[in-house]
Simulated assay, not measured.
Amino acid sequence: MIDETVRQIQGDEIQSPSIGAVKAAEALRELSTREYHTVEEFMRSLVSNSRALRQANQTHAILYTTQQRIIAEVNELDPTTVDEAKARLNSVIEDTVTRVEQSKRRAAERAAELVDDGDTLLVHEHSSTVMATLDRVLESGKRLTLYVAEARPRYLGRKTARRFAGRDGVDTTLVVDGAVGYYLSEADRVLVGMNCLVEDTVYNTVGTYPIAATAASEAVPVTVVGSAAKFIGSGFDFDNEFGPSPEVLLEPAEGFNVGNPEYDGTPTRLLETVVTEDSVIEF
């Protein structure tokens, strides 16, 4: 299960960082079924497998923070037997998964309060926390007009558009990325997720920065929603990834390069708010 989860995270089969963090935490349950002669042997295995999961994608901050927490909280108990260490690991995994799910739900509830009945929103890609926010807005009986940027080259916006197609209370339009400026003039708010927040920069799926910059020009407020676990201090270096050229071009790129970064950085000065399960931070 651990090796398969590493492969899925490395292959970007799990696109939501929060979902990836949950899967990585649950994958460590496999260690409780293995045989270990000493606590030290068990802990070495836990640390090495956790490292493999963290390194599967070094852009997912919540993967980093949750795996660090698991190691720290198992260590904190200072188990004296292997069975005690295994029991502690399973308990910490359960708590970690609950925290991630609850933080997503609470952040979505807070963000939904910023949306008024009849608002027009522009969203980007397919953040699971943004999806939860939109679900919460619609469940409260509010009506929305939703513009969804396609989020090339993986077209994650198509998943969002399909998710809300035909839903009561929402009129959904998928727009090409280059038309964001055209539709922003009609928007009351931009709502996006985040991979992580490092100092004064939000890293998210590429395309977020130009949307935020254009929104600032049009005086449209931008709200970022995500777990507080995505706030990163020291010890984490955001290392951008670049997709293969076939994602952009079907034919070979002959005589030129293809720039295909997966993330970009948005300065917090372009944002109105960052919403987490703990607070609404204004800029």
Rank of each mutant, 00 (worst) to 15 (best):
G207F: 10
T145W: 07
E113I: 04
T66R: 14
T66Q: 13
G193L: 02
V280N: 09
I71F: 08
A27M: 00
R51Q: 10
L146H: 08
T273M: 10
I70Y: 07
Q102G: 10
L138D: 05
H60T: 15
S32R: 05
H124W: 05
T268V: 15
A108F: 09
Q15F: 12
V275S: 00
R69N: 14
R163M: 06
V175C: 04
T80W: 15
T214A: 13
E84N: 07
Y263K: 03
S32E: 02
S50E: 00
G20K: 01
E254C: 06
T172V: 15
K104E: 14
D119C: 09
G259K: 14
A216N: 12
N75R: 14
D119W: 09
E125F: 14
V248P: 03
R269T: 12
E41N: 08
Y155H: 11
R106L: 11
S217T: 15
D135A: 10
V190I: 01
S32H: 10
R143P: 11
T273W: 13
L144T: 05
G157D: 05
T172P: 10
I71D: 05
T172I: 09
E40D: 15
G226A: 03
P221M: 03
N260I: 00
A215Y: 09
A21E: 01
T59E: 09
F42W: 05
H37K: 15
D188W: 11
F242S: 07
R163L: 10
V202I: 14
S103T: 12
E76W: 11
L144W: 11
Y263W: 05
T205D: 13
L270S: 06
L63Y: 05
E84C: 07
D188K: 10
R105Q: 12
T173D: 02
I62R: 06
V225A: 02
L197S: 10
I211C: 02
R136M: 13
L138N: 02
N240C: 06
Y182D: 11
G233L: 02
A179D: 15
K86H: 02
R143N: 14
V22L: 01
A72N: 13
P153H: 01
R34K: 12
Y147P: 03
I93D: 04
V224C: 06
A27P: 08
M43H: 15
T273C: 13
A56T: 00
A25S: 11
T201S: 09
G243M: 09
S45L: 03
R189W: 02
T129L: 04
A111C: 04
T133N: 05
E113C: 10
I93S: 04
S128F: 07
T38D: 00
E113R: 13
A112C: 07
T38M: 05
D200S: 14
G166R: 01
Q55N: 15
G11Y: 08
G141P: 06
T38E: 04
L134D: 07
E40Y: 12
L197T: 09
E101C: 09
G118A: 03
L122I: 08
S16M: 02
M43W: 15
V97G: 01
S227E: 09
N260F: 10
E30I: 00
R158F: 09
Y64E: 10
P17A: 09
T38H: 11
V274S: 04
T65N: 04
E262M: 15
A229M: 13
